[in-house]
Structure formats: structure tokens, C-alpha cells
Design a protein around this nucleic acid. Structure first.
Lengths: 157, 157
DNA sequence: TGGTTTAAAGGTCAAAGAAAGTCAAAGGCA
DNA sequence: TGCCTTTGACTTTCTTTGACCTTTAAACCA
């Protein structure tokens, strides 16, 4: 018996292929219904198959008119981004390394000078003061990762 | 299904765009009637979408000849930024309020969608997990302030 | 003229409804 | 046995609706 999760995975990937643009919207409950499974299985598929290391980014909204939106990074065009995403940055990151990553993004034209400037400040020791040092490097790593992650959204636009 | 609240939101924003001047007047009941919804839904839209942090201000009057007047912050960039900074921005900031400030920056064209998306993630609970809650709101306030400060610098260049 | 009533606004709040998220337990298979 | 998968109960978030409240201008009347 083929695993249901695999079927759902390829179903979503097919949607992404067929669709123009780099994202698709799904309704979690509707999809679950279509495959006759628990809604939370959709989450399982998303969490295990559509991770950012694999080049996916997910946004969602609850409540009436809610949705799950799945973005896919363009692998060819943004090779720098894909490379970085698959690389897996560490769980801790000092200020200098963080700056270097941001410089890279600027050089690749993935962010503009304004964003670069803002983000440099955001991950600086100054702004992150108030967190103790060890935690600070955790947070910084998280922030830089989330920057890369978010950029998936803006590939092939 | 498109959300009614979103439709009403963009309807009002369009009114603001079309209109000369920095405000529009609406009749709550009339608008509710136009969209076939409960009058209180108009309040819901105003409370969730036209907040101070997003750069809006609302005045209203009851009784005969009553109205709701919606002001949009002037596009004088520098003053918008300083205003926000100097006014209610406290030392602690929850996720939702931070999001609202970023929405305001986007609407004022002070940051683009890319930066908006990135920063939204950066100040999200998810990314800031690992800091305990109280400290988290401190850091978030710091981050948002530093974004505004950096932008002021950019405006003066 | 000046107080009183009435109708016409808008405001508040809580409940119902509509999604999606979380987490732990149960089930299968190498 | 240990790691994926599957399921389901419970939670959180966002939207819509409706019943009831407050304010105010205008009309009415002594």
C-alpha cells in the first residue's frame, strides 16, 4: 500500500507545477476531505515534506476564509538562495556572521539597501541587548534563517 | 470564499485614494446595507484594519446626521515615522501590534512587500521563541523601534 | 422660547460559525 | 524495537451576526 502522505505530497507538488506562479492555496479541511483523512495529516505532510531546507515556505490564516499558501523557491534562478537554504545554518550565530549573510543577500540583489540597513540593525548586539549572550546568538540564527526562508516567497516573481 | 471584511477594507481604502484630502466620511448603516451585513461588521473592519499603528485615525458622531470619519496619516514620511516613534510605542510590544506597525510602513510605502514579509517573520513569536515571553516583547519593541529609526535615517539622506 | 419626546445615527459585547494548529496516543512496518 | 504515519480530541484565531445600549439632532408641544 502506497503511503497516503506521499500521495498528498505529490498531489500538492503537481498543483505547484500546473499553477502559474510560485505558490498555491489549499483549504486544509477540503483537502483532508478529498483524501479521506484527518485534517492534521495535511499538517504532517507540510511539516515533513515542505520544509524550508527543501525550498518551501508556508503561510496560513485561520478563521473564516482561512487558507494555507505554499510557496516554492525557483531552483534554477536563485541558486544562491537554494544553496544557502539547503546548507542548514547553525543554531547559533554571532553578529559578524549574521552581517556577512546579510551582505551576501545584498550582493545577490535579494534585498535592497534599505532592507539591508534595517536588518543589520535588527540583528546587531545593540538591538538584541537585553537577551543574554547565549540566547542572543540563538535568536540571531533564527532571525537570519527566517530572512532566507521568507525570500523563498519572492523567487520567480 | 473571499472574506467580506477584506472587501469592505479595500472599498474604504479606495474611497481614501480617490478622495482629495486625508479623510473620508461614511455612514455606518448605509455601508452595512450596501454590503448586506450587520452594521457592527463595519466596526469590526475599522477596529482590525484602520488602527492607529497602521496610520489611521477615526472620529465619529452619533445621532441624526451622524458619521464615521476615517483619517489616513499624511504621506510626509519623516513626520509619520517620528510621530509613531514618539507616541505610543512602548517598551514592550506584542506580536499583533508589531505586525500592525509593519503594515503601516508598507501602506506608507516606506518599505516594500519583501521587507514587510521579512520583518513580519522576524518579529513573529515563532522566530522569537527561545526568549521568554516578557523579554520577547522587549526585544520586539526594540526591533520595531530600530526599524523606524533606520528609516528616518534613510529619509534624511 | 425652552423643555420633552422621538427617531436616527453610531457603539458594545457576547455568541455562533469557520477555518487552521497542536499534541499525544495508536497503528504499522522494516 | 524504533521510526514513520495516521487519527482524533482539544485549542486558537479570525469573522459574522444579532440583541441591546448610548448619543444627538430634530420635531413637537406647552
Amino acid at each position: 500500500m502506497t503511503k497516503l502522505s506521499d500521495i498528498i505530497e505529490s498531489f500538492i507538488k503537481q498543483m505547484l507545477d500546473v499553477n502559474e506562479g510560485n505558490f498555491v492555496d489549499i483549504q486544509r479541511n477540503e483537502l483532508a476531505n478529498h483524501f479521506n483523512c484527518a485534517p492534521s495529516q495535511i499538517n504532517y505532510v507540510l511539516e515533513t515534506r515542505f520544509t524550508y531546507e527543501r525550498g518551501y515556505y508556508i503561510e496560513s490564516k485561520r478563521g473564516g476564509g482561512g487558507y494555507v499558501r505554499i510557496f516554492k523557491a525557483g531552483t534554477d534562478e536563485d541558486s544562491y538562495l537554494s544553496l544557502m537554504l539547503s546548507q542548514r545554518m547553525g543554531d547559533k550565530m554571532g553578529q559578524q556572521i549574521a552581517f556577512a549573510y546579510l551582505d551576501g543577500l545584498l550582493e545577490q540583489n535579494l534585498i535592497d539597501e534599505r532592507a539591508h540597513s534595517i536588518l543589520r540593525n535588527v540583528v546587531s548586539d545593540k538591538v538584541l541587548a537585553g537577551i543574554d549572550t547565549q540566547q542572543r546568538d540563538d535568536v540571531r540564527a533564527n532571525v537570519i534563517k527566517s530572512v532566507f526562508l521568507t525570500l523563498i516567497k519572492f523567487c520567480n516573481e
